[in-house]
Amino acid sequence: MHITVNGENKEFDTSSLPITTLLEVAKVESPDMVSVQVNGKVIDRTLYADTLLRDNDEVDFLYFMGGGA
């Protein structure tokens, strides 16, 4: 299946993929520091394992950045 991640096209040999797996595959170092948006809907962090991505989903990783000083 085909997923867009932060504007880039990605292909996967599966028909559904939990967000937690995508975070691993995408080598996101600190999954707790990322907010995940799927097709415009921001997913609650507690639901990453239960949320399955489908063909043609558009996923955005929004990284927490707390600095400012």
Binding site: S30, D32, M33, S35, Q37, D44, L62, F64, G66, G67
Partner: peptide
Amino acid sequence: RCAFRNPPPPDAVPSCSEAGV
């Protein structure tokens, strides 16, 4: 909050040594 919902868990926030700018 629409984008980030809640603050990240305190132990996930980068520690001082990782937090240069």
